[in-house]
Write a protein that binds this DNA or RNA. Structure first.
Lengths: 349, 349
DNA sequence: CCGCGTATTTAGATCGATCTACTACTTTGC
DNA sequence: GCAAAGTAGTAGATCGATCTAAATACGCGG
């Protein structure tokens, strides 16, 4: 009867629904959760009663009793990095369709903030954690979370142990380096990724192995992994420098190409570039960026799935998933680049 | 005594802390919330007892009784857009320092997903909502949220009414347009922002007014607001086209500059560009992007503050904050651009 | 028509905090 | 010296769901 929910009267509770449907409170609760223990008719009757009253489920109450919150805590090391933003979107979408909500915190690479947020997540009694550890996080954090009884999955970055989803970094840079070698480059340097973490070391290793396998010396050009830094750094390189750069990620490659332009050099012609991640902007860049594709969204989805399985069965061994990368060959490595100079001449004739 | 929290035994409750400290449960609760109703010594004793037991506050229980969750729901229309990513970081930081956690959902511009997530937020009994309405959201959504008793603030995008924090879009594009006019441009077009929302109309208006004030015809070049689209669109413009583009936002401006390069034209020399937002990448772009600065982070912080005030006093009238933009003059509008060609010549001498 | 197993439904305790209203004990005022 | 006011602490109800264990209904063989 009550049709329209009235803001003045209080929100309907499960007891009200039970009354309206003419069943017991516990029956109503079961019906609203679609329990097979109830007859279909009963379930339907209760659900219709709930509809009539404009009943809204109160997960806070459920959470207190059942201990399950259907909330996952997510720690992102730097949400303003487009790769992590995409990954966040992937995680969120995957968890959303499994009925979970996502508590998000940006650690901005600070282990202190990271710790504070983990504690807050614990107070909020999240069902699990999905995180990219801030640079400098000790692996012992996993033990602590374990002690807290909080299932955890690392994504992209991780530790030697523990549930994890991430790209095969070494294979990725190996593919990129081998491609450049095939194109005839010999003086190839690795740009960016100074931080000592699993991602940096993996990407460096893939590059370095490919170089030494060809009898060449690997060279590390360290710079912070953002566009501005990379741009400044590359602008200082002279024409005597490397003819090709394997960049730590796409942002660094973008920075490198802008730096080259600033120095009056043409990315893709004067210096070949490869990136890593294949973020959305990579293909529409000029020149389009040759890069290692590891769909951030897919990593997010994989991480979410591992976490959900882990929540279901916390005793199962920690699963680790390494996503195979593919090389997206575009123009920035020198193949098939249409140069502005050439175009300009063509246009004026 | 119990020193180390034992994962085998259950988590300590407030009753355990009370026992350890030799006070009543309600006293312990007050002490843990630092209530001034208690003597300092009592508070300290309880807090130390909590420390000893490794007590962790259970907000789920508190939330059930008190109705306050210290969780805010945030709806982002497109988290992979760097501007919104920065805004998200701002909101998150501001709310975090006020003791709140943020439930995040990416609507990907879908009103359906937006609605679903709002309902989920409601179930989770968030204390408030901070959102950028997906394109096509009716203003009546505000009434619904009101009926639900959920305080809400819109950021960046919004409606005619309701609490809001956002940039002064019209002033921003007016500044940019006037700057281009001062530089002698007459054939200036507005690029991007086809969607019919408050942001698009505001930015178009500022541009159009400045044009008509100078006796010029405003021209809208509609294209979707992402880098790839803008790049494709601009690549088709001929040299007979406009000499300057006021772009809807930085991403569009980036796309435009890449599109010009593809067409063999030089952004900043052949065509002047201005952006909007001043995202991190704008200053390290080549050429550095002249753009309207409205710190995304500041909008996020302003939005968070308005929401928190609104939660404190829901009966107060909805506050609206418009952040004044400033024009960041850089090279992309043609002033002080050092051209690659010139540089290249200088380097070879 | 009884007993037994299975399918449904239910009563009442429970999760862990907060809130209200009350007690006990000081202090103050006159 | 006694009421009024103030201070510090407490008992017990309460939030709204879930869980456990038990009651009831139903079907069927004998």
């Amino acid at each position: 009867m009550a049709g329209i929910p009235n803001p003045a009267t209080k929100r309907a509770r499960i007891a009200d629904v039970a009354l309206e449907a003419g069943v017991a409170r516990s029956t109503a609760a079961l019906a609203l959760r679609d329990s097979p223990r109830l007859r279909v008719e009963t379930r339907l009757a209760v659900q219709q009663a709930a509809e009539r009253l404009g009943y809204v489920y109160n997960r806070s109450a459920a959470r207190l009793r059942s201990g399950r919150s259907y909330v996952i805590g997510m720690l992102v090391c730097e949400i303003t990095n487009p790769f992590y933003a995409e990954l966040t979107a992937g995680v969120q979408a995957a968890l959303e369709s499994a009925g979970y909500a996502v508590l998000l915190a940006n650690t901005a690479e600070s282990p202190v903030r990271q710790r504070r947020m983990l504690e807050r997540f614990r107070e909020q009694s999240v069902d699990g954690i999905i995180m990219m550890p801030a640079t400098g996080t000790p692996a012992s954090l996993l033990d602590e979370l374990d002690e807290w009884g909080l299932p955890c999955v690392t994504v992209v970055r991780g530790f030697r142990r523990g549930a994890h989803a991430g790209p095969d970094n070494a294979t990725g840079t190996r593919l990129a380096t081998e491609h450049l070698l095939r194109l005839g480059h010999r003086d190839i340097a690795f740009l960016g990724g100074a931080a000592r973490n699993s991602v940096s070391s993996g990407r460096w290793e893939g590059y370095a192995r490919a170089m030494t396998a060809s009898g060449l010396m690997p060279l590390h050009l360290p710079c912070r992994t953002d566009m501005g830094e990379a741009s400044d750094f590359v602008a200082t390189l002279t024409s005597a420098g490397p003819t090709a750069l394997v960049c730590f990620n796409d942002s660094v490659a973008f920075g490198a190409s802008l730096g080259l332009l600033r120095a009056g050099r043409q990315p893709g012609r004067d210096v070949a570039l490869t990136g890593f991640d294949d973020i959305r902007e990579a293909s529409s860049w000029f020149p389009p960026l040759t890069t290692v594709r590891v769909a951030a969204v897919d990593i997010g989805i994989a991480g979410a799935r591992i976490l959900l399985d882990r929540i279901q069965d916390p005793s199962a061994p920690a699963r680790r998933e390494t996503l195979a990368p593919t090389l997206m060959v575009r123009a920035s490595c020198g193949a098939g680049l249409r140069l502005p100079a050439a175009r300009r001449k063509a246009r004026t004739t």
